[in-house]
């Protein structure tokens, strides 16, 4: 009964293509769930529906018992900013901002004064192995370092859920493993749950359980706990 995020009978079509054909999924507090599937299976669409980025055509999404799929774009946008964190394959960092300001940005958007936001942002650099990287710009960071900055940014506003879409897709095997370790550890340490979309079993292995999507439906039985 301690489900944080629940999706029920989620359906989504793009023209004639069925992206989601009635998916049920629930994620418990502190849990890390991997969503796997081949290209075009509907796994990214599932993540977008759960994160309030996209409205499903059918079904419901609940966050901590509150229905969120029926909210207007403005409230869903505010929800994404305050209750969710995001890590993407690449490109989510603003190239002109130094790393610490990239991390501080969600706090500033939430109304935290700049100096305090930057101070809070800096606290994440040590635990994530980014000492002395605070003032570097994304172009001056390695791929792994940039993903760790993105993890810090996803977690800095203490979200309930972190969504990661192919977070290691642009990294080599070793860096990818290290990034996943940090992502899972930091998320759990923060008390958030994690939903990772990936096609890589090595990435999925870091999560508590894996659900597999094929042609818009869940194949595995782990959909609802």
């Amino acid at each position: 009964m301690n489900d944080v995020l629940v999706g029920r009978a989620l359906a989504k079509r793009f023209g004639q293509t069925v992206a989601l054909g009635g998916v049920d999924i629930a994620v418990r507090a502190g849990e890390a769930v991997a969503i796997m599937g081949p290209s075009g299976s509907g796994k990214s669409t599932l993540l977008h529906c759960l994160a309030g980025i996209m409205k499903p055509d059918g079904g419901e999404v609940h966050l901590l018992g509150q229905r969120i799929d029926a909210l207007g774009e403005r409230r869903r946008s505010a929800l994404r900013r305050t209750r969710f964190g995001f890590v993407f394959q690449f490109g989510q960092l603003l190239p002109e901002l130094p790393a610490e300001e990239n991390v501080a940005l969600p706090l500033m958007l939430g109304g935290v004064p700049r100096a305090q936001a930057v101070r809070q942002a800096r606290e994440w650099f040590g635990p994530l192995g980014l000492q002395s990287m605070e003032s570097r710009r994304p172009g001056e960071l390695s791929g792994g370092q940039a993903q760790r900055v993105a993890i810090a940014r996803a977690l800095v506003s203490k979200p309930a859920v972190v969504f990661a879409d192919e977070p290691t897709g642009a990294l080599d095997q070793q860096t990818g493993q290290e990034t996943m370790r940090l992502l899972v550890e930091a998320t759990k340490h923060n008390g958030a749950c994690l939903i990772v979309v990936t096609h890589d079993p090595n990435v999925a292995a870091w999560c508590d359980r894996t659900v597999e999507v094929r042609d818009g439906r869940l194949l595995t039985s782990g959909a609802l706990a």
């Binding site: 980025i53 946008s77 505010a78 900013r81 995001f86 490109g91 989510q92 603003l94 958007l109």
Partner: peptide, 11 residues
């Protein structure tokens, strides 16, 4: 960049 920022909730 704009797309990802908005996706992450930036108004």
């Amino acid at each position: 960049t704009y797309g990802l920022l908005r996706l992450a909730g930036t108004p």
